[in-house]
Design a protein around this nucleic acid. Structure first.
Lengths: 232, 232
DNA sequence: GTTCTTATTTGCGCTAGCGCAAAGACAGGG
DNA sequence: CCCTGTCTTTGCGCTAGCGCAAATAAGAAC
């Protein structure tokens, strides 16, 4: 795999970086390829690299002492991950990153990253902006988990996923997502059983079409209505 | 109220700022005094200032469309708040800040803040570090809410509060907190009733001593045990 | 001291959502 | 085409936690 500085422009945080900086970044990083279901890093590992997903798909998750896990984010090409650990000196990753399909990522050394941030206020600023938006999302999801019913949270998750990774098939054919019931449960703080029951119900009502690890959204508007709790 | 540059050194993000920068900050900011139960800003307001609490105590909270609210953080002197909105140009505050007692805060113009961050990589870096730690906390709380039982979450909240704001009375007399049952409920995503029942139970067992808007932790170790779910 | 307001406790009934268990339904490999 | 592993569905029973309502307690105001 050969990356050019131009490719890196697709990374939000590097959109304002100079050509020189981009070249320097490439020089100080390596490509890591990870097979489906394998891991980029585990929660608790020393954070030696900041990653940028190049191809494939991955997920960021966190588990508690007894092994239950929650899904923090699904990662798509050109998104950054592992930043939380890598920004602070001698930090550890607070989450685990697992490849959902064969994937590759650019791994930037955290030592180099520190130097880069010190010398480039632009990149720092853009990274900070990214972090603020991430905090906002976490706060919103936290509030959702604390105050909304399962039904609303699952509807919300589908809407959010549709926006992030949804592939629009032929026009009006709906938005297709590739997640298992278990995945959705981990994203919304509920169980695989409850998700299955909800999806079956919505399918009966014609809002979605389900399949093995597939959910096709037919009537986004109805999901929005459910998410807002106007149902019932 | 008269603040000196030296006072500002107590702010985590400004610990590495130069004397000149600190003076500039003071020059470009004003003091706002807010009475108990009044507000610094509301969720949705245009974010014109970044605040630093000087005296008093405040809380950051977020509400959903139907008015239910969750408590994001309790603020103590020299802590920063409103940063999420103020860092991005033309942003809005994603949360509401309310004074828990008569309070005052330094309000730094967001326009000036942008310039400051552009010119000072040190401050940018420290702010970024603060944000990473905040993201980590939110992720941990999110996971907690998704996977732990109410009992564990409440125990955890008390432990966390004791670390942040607890006042140790005479030795061995316990750590005293000033929060209502409602406050604790909003921090842990449960209801005032459930919190009341739990606290009563723990008081019967001698772990804590309760009072009107007061919770004194007598046996922190027992709470830790509950928080870890080893109970039962 | 009396009154008012606000916080807390607790009984009680209820239901949303959990989670086991067992039975399909798919998809891929050989 | 069959076998195997994984994902999904659904019946069933259960309980953690919700939330009303009413009583009580603790300050605050006068």
């Amino acid at each position: 795999m050969n990356l050019s500085p131009k490719d890196l422009k697709q990374v939000v945080v590097f959109q304002n970086a100079t050509e020189t900086e981009l070249q320097l970044i490439l020089k100080n990083s390596i490509i890591r390829s990870i097979e489906e279901n394998e891991f980029f890093f585990f929660q608790g590992d020393a954070a030696e690299y900041l990653y940028i997903l190049i191809t494939g798909q991955a997920k960021l998750m966190q588990s508690n002492p007894s092994g239950q896990q929650v899904n923090l984010r699904t990662l798509h090409p050109w998104q950054m991950f592992g930043a939380l650990g890598a920004v602070r000196a001698e930090a550890i990753y607070p989450a685990t990153a697992q490849a959902l399909e064969d994937s590759s990522a650019l791994a930037i050394e955290s030592g180099f990253l520190h130097k880069l941030l010190e010398t480039s206020p632009k990149i720092s600023f853009d990274l900070m902006t990214l972090m603020t938006s991430y905090i906002q999302e976490m706060q919103a999801r936290y509030r959702e988990l604390a105050t909304e019913r399962v039904e609303q949270r699952v509807a919300n998750a589908l809407i959010r996923l549709a926006g992030q990774s949804g592939i629009r098939a032929e026009k009006d054919a709906g938005i297709e997502l590739s997640f298992s019931r278990q995945d959705v449960a981990e994203m919304t703080g509920t169980t695989l059983y409850t998700v299955s029951r909800l999806l079956s119900d919505w399918e009966r009502k014609g809002y979605i079409k389900t399949g093995r690890e597939k959910i096709k959204i037919l009537k986004p508007h109805d999901l929005v209505r459910i998410a807002e709790g106007l149902e019932k």
